[in-house]
Amino acid sequence: MNTGSFTSKLDAMIGWARKFSIFQYPFVTACCGMEYMATACSHYDVDRFGAGLPRFSPRQSDVLFVVGTISHKIAPVLKQIYDQMADPKWVVAFGVCTCTGGFYDNYATVQGIDTIIPVDVYIPGCPPRPENVLDGLIKLQEKIQKQKQE
């Protein structure tokens, strides 16, 4: 029996199921939160992608949305929340501050959250437009679909 084909089919099925039931944890810190709100609300409606229900407990969420500038003071908190999330988990860096630090190159700001936690999807923009966010979300879904399911 060809188990390889079987597992890849199963993987595809699990991936399909997972990508449409994204429970997100919005780690909202700054300006990007406004665009996050706009994306989540009725006008842009993130619910269409099965990501409409934010869970405010890291234990119950699959995707960590890091929305807004991360300062050195909050960095340990972010790391702790990431560690508390159960596998499989993904991280979205929302906004240029989380991608690289943006134009906040100073003593207080972390120069990209990927120096602290692994990141799956980067959504640049200061802040990214809601369309841009949805594009990032679709890219995350593609990634979830195609990856090897644990």
Partner: peptide, 30 residues
């Protein structure tokens, strides 16, 4: 407080008068 300290005032001293304007956007971002 202080979890979102982004050094606006320090940055303003580093840049010219016109370059401060984009930083002011992000003070009260609502």
């Amino acid at each position: 407080i202080g979890y979102l300290h982004r050094a606006f005032e320090k940055h303003s001293e580093q840049s010219g008068y016109l370059q401060v304007i984009p930083y002011t956007d992000r003070l009260n971002y609502v």
